[in-house]
Design a protein around this nucleic acid. Structure first.
Lengths: 215, 215
DNA sequence: TCGGTAAGCTGACGGCATGACAGGACAAGT
DNA sequence: ACTTGTCCTGTCATGCCGTCAGCTTACCGA
């Protein structure tokens, strides 16, 4: 599937090498959580991992390269997000629950990986195709399901035909990501975490079905 | 009002100094549009402005400091966004038009300032209070109006009481910002710019009024 | 016209991060 | 013990960072 792990100069990495490599990735992750992306330096990551900058450069071309690696691992885990929507109903009380669980699960994922996701978002916004690809991979796991759900309802005539399912689905998902990234803003608006979720679920439900949920 | 413009070492900046300062800011803006934030170096900005790094450090403590300055200028301009909502109606056809114009105006602003807004978003997400303050200043110009509109409808009993107007308003505004930042993603989902806007307007209308618009 | 003063700019410098290389340390098999 | 291939690091040239002293320029009052 994915070829063997290799160093920058082409050697295959053995057991010890992979451990070092992973340690560097872990330390980089921690640093991203604690300091601004712009200030994360190779030398700091190496120091924290108890090794030297030269070692870092054996496994990654630069900080960005290592970040892409972390993001890739996370994107793989994001496949689990599809469970939030697979086989769910959007009608009646079940619909309200689906919306709630989607909001819950998605925001949980985003919060758990917030540091790396910030960087992925930035890279994607700056037009970097590699970051964009990863971001879409993560979002697609939810967006495509959501798009199908909307299309389904549309086919049954429950939603106007001039609605674009992909646009609505994408906008809703992107909304969730942005809210998760900027929860601090909401608290200064006087909105508490606990209040936020049901309101987001309401918006999601409205967007998908066009109607208020029956609770 | 705002004290005189000063250099880092406390001198007041004269006409020439202010021109240089502004030129550095302009060049920094350009650089932010063309290269990743992480790679923007003082020396590059200075070179582009036809001056030396030392001059840059006379006016700004570092790149971040200069970015905050640009962001402040932009936040001042964002006051114009209030016009998009002042005295608008959310009922009937007028409501649909209000939603459309809000989406249009807001996304236009975001696209015009996308480079600097990316950085502000990142800074805010990383927990930097200064960036968060600027971001909220920009968003508040729209969010507070939107919150009032929702509260008003709620007072008339047209919206459920358990809806939190600030949460809904914030989520909708944040959605617009995120969509504007990641339009590229939508095009790979097969959603064109022209299709996107009415669907966003629909979501905004649904969120504010709880009902589908009458077009 | 002529200093005097403050603003404005830059060359130069120590310090640190970067990225490349060669060579030493280490584990595993013979 | 010896060989082999993996793994790590000391070292070095390069380039950016951030600061300072000192030079040039503009303004102003006498």
């Amino acid at each position: 599937m994915t070829g063997q792990v290799r160093t920058v100069d082409g050697r295959v990495a053995g057991r010890r090498g992979q451990a070092t490599r992973q340690k560097l990735l872990d330390c980089l992750s921690e640093m991203l959580s604690s300091s601004p992306y712009r200030d994360v330096k190779v030398i700091d990551v190496a120091r924290r991992a108890g090794t030297s900058p030269a070692t870092f450069y054996q496994y990654f071309p630069d900080v960005e390269g290592a970040v892409l690696e972390i993001a890739d691992q996370m994107a793989a885990e994001s496949a689990g997000l599809t469970e939030l929507l697979e086989g769910r109903s959007w009608t009646g009380k079940a619909g309200w629950q689906t919306a709630q669980e989607l909001v819950d699960g998605f925001m949980e994922f985003w919060r758990k990986n917030d540091a790396i996701l910030r960087v992925v978002d930035l890279g994607a916004a700056e037009g970097d195709k590699r970051f964009n690809k990863i971001r879409l991979k993560i979002l697609n796991s939810v967006t495509s399901s959501l798009t199908e759900a909307i299309s389904g309802l549309q086919a049954k005539g429950r939603i106007d035909k001039d609605v674009n399912p992909a646009a609505i689905a994408g906008a809703l998902v992107v909304m969730l990501t942005a809210v998760a990234s900027h929860q601090k803003g909401f608290s200064t608006w006087g909105v508490k975490q606990a209040e936020l979720k049901p309101n987001l679920a309401l918006l999601v439900h409205l967007g998908v079905t066009g109607k208020k949920p029956t609770k």
